[in-house]
Design a protein around this nucleic acid. Sequence first.
DNA 1: TATAAAGTTTAGATTAGTCTAAAAATTTAT
DNA 2: ATAAATTTTTAGACTAATCTAAACTTTATA
Lengths: 217, 217
Amino acid sequence: MLSFTEENYLKAIYHLSDGGLKSVLTNEIAESIQTKPASVTDMVKKLALKNLITYEKYHGVKVTRQGKSQALAIIRKHRLWETFLVEKLGFDWGEVHDVAEQLEHIQSPLLIEKLDEFLGFPSADPHGHPIPDKNGKITIARQITLLEATEKKAIIRSVKDSSASFLDYLSKVGIYIGATVQVMERLAFDGSLEIKIDGKKKVYISREAGENILVTQ
Amino acid sequence: MLSFTEENYLKAIYHLSDGGLKSVLTNEIAESIQTKPASVTDMVKKLALKNLITYEKYHGVKVTRQGKSQALAIIRKHRLWETFLVEKLGFDWGEVHDVAEQLEHIQSPLLIEKLDEFLGFPSADPHGHPIPDKNGKITIARQITLLEATEKKAIIRSVKDSSASFLDYLSKVGIYIGATVQVMERLAFDGSLEIKIDGKKKVYISREAGENILVTQ
DNA sequence: TATAAAGTTTAGATTAGTCTAAAAATTTAT
DNA sequence: ATAAATTTTTAGACTAATCTAAACTTTATA
């Protein structure tokens, strides 16, 4: 069984590797969990010994099949708890992360099964992120353009137009891959959209921009 | 803020002291949290330094006003979580303790307030133990005889007849101060009671015995 | 392609919590 | 009242996780 700390490292590595695709460097891990590179080196050796990641000195780490499966179990717990906090306890979806970060380490498979059932087996958390099932399987939603999105929350996945000028525009207004957005209103006049980014900032984007942004819901 | 471990020591000391009344000895603490006396000595020094207990070498410890207040906050969390697990998630009341033991350490005052509200501000957990309010106040239920108890769970508090023979009888059948019992049936024939002890053992006790056992509900 | 810069690892120290074994204090029993 | 038994504390060691500073690799640059 993993310690609280080992779980945090594994989850961070999994996220930084885009779900096990890329390999991840020491400094990235250190920055993402607010620790020093030397500490990361120590810990990745330990995780490698447990076959959760493969580690090549000076060249970063990759999650193994086992590591991926354990990371997904933690992510599943995190997202189920976030859903509980928002849907049942009435938290605002911006204030649940820190608490879910604690709750995700509770060890009880039965608890998670029962919580899942109590929540009606949700497929996404309040931020729109998919909740892996008991076997770690993630049901990936079809990508649609922001223009086609309903008024529920959506996650930015990619762009059709990847010209520097468009990417520059997106970063200026605060839209980035992984952001949670919500279409608040569509203006009949020119088809432009009023969207909320990460529950805070409201911006207007044109119809053309909306057609070039791909999201999942 | 207290660590996970400090919280466990404080809670154990509070319980062993009968809510801050008696002082508690090193070996009792060691046994109750499955550790060695030497470790207890180290930890009580630390808790004393934080003014949560007073410690007199070789003569045990007492909880301070502050310590009591913090212990009650932990107990409140534990009992609210137990209530949640049973009432909302459908756990059996015998299988919630270990999970609640983990959940009680989650740090978020807001979470506990919202959980309390979600549960309808319960005054007792599924075992019948009172849940301290936000200020640590425990509403003590009136003591009644087991004969007068309803079919909800009840906690054994004391006995009217404290003769050795009666106490011996009680220990033989498995009834002790603090046990959770539930009257399952009253036999019309002689007024004897069928009771369940700690959710497991079923025993029959006479009308006379029932009249001499005091409980709260 | 040699060298500087950046990134990573190692070595050694630190803190929290635990343990064993030995020493000290207290309690019990004679 | 003193010796024996019990309880508690101290001393010193160990593990997990962290850190700093120095050494080492890799990458970028000139």
